[in-house]
Amino acid sequence: MIAPRAWHWPAAVALLLFVALAGLVFGVSTIPLSEIFAAITGGGDETTTTIVRTLRAPRVALAAMVGAALAMSGAALQGALRNSLAEPYLLGVSGGAAVGAVLAFGLGLQHTGSLAIPAFVGAIVAVGAALLVARAAGRAARGDPRTLLMAGVIIGAFANAVIMVALANSTSDTLRGSLWWMMGSVADASWAGALWLGLYLGVAGLALLRLAPEIDVLALGEEAAAALGSDVERATRTVFLVSALLAAATVAAAGLIGFVGLIVPHIVRAFGVRRHRRLIAGSAIVGGILVILADVVARTALPPAELPLGAVTALIGVPFFLVRLGRMR
């Protein structure tokens, strides 16, 4: 545990900018900084300008926003559900989105870009179903956040089964497209897609920051939260819904990218950040840093092929998490 220091915040932002710059520099070919600046300001080689402006820059922007959104979502959920292992993907978001995408593929939606909508709808349906399951089970276990987690896991398992059935008899196009999508990637990033997610991130992110004091209170437990004036069920549901929306938007934009929502809040807590407003804001920055870095690894590890981003985040995330668990006693 590191004591929080005032300089941590500007340092984190500086690191984010630095990493974003690295995201512009590194790829299959390394573009020197001078050429990057030339490309941004409008001078310089045409091919390099194209690569920097229309390929790498939106990609870095999308990676940063995906990371920020997932991490904020994870930080909020962990607090509200009082579970340090909670993350958006555990709540059925990923499963539902995957079902939406796979069905859309199967129905012949050719353009991968148009998967965003069915994936988003799938995620929302799954979250709605999880809430219903939780409410049905909740009569017996009122206010127990584990009910919500369990409901999410159950919906996720069901979604998996649907995917298996849908893929069992599908064409190779559907299969390949679905798999690629399920492994997550920001390779298809465009400014339009980045802007779209940015809009979501702005609205939902602000909502989470506003909900942060409520999450602080929820984290104390059901009775303590009620004693402090929180409408526990409603507050939990709201946080759940906003977080799920945020995660669903990332899933629609970049497929499934796991572990970010789980580990980033832990990293930020390790810097002594505890109140949720700071935790959520810090998670946004660190999440951005992490996913940009993971994407740099994804595109430089095996050129000219690219690794799936979701696989890279898992490869980074799992060992990190095990170390954290070990230190947590």
């Binding site: 070919s29 091919t47 690569i51 390929l55 790498r56 353009h111 050129p303």
Partner: peptide, 21 residues
Amino acid sequence: PNLEVVIGAKPDLVILYASAD
């Protein structure tokens, strides 16, 4: 395909397999 690699090679024609992905 990795578009950075493709564009970096400055092609005037790219031939692709016509699959959805």
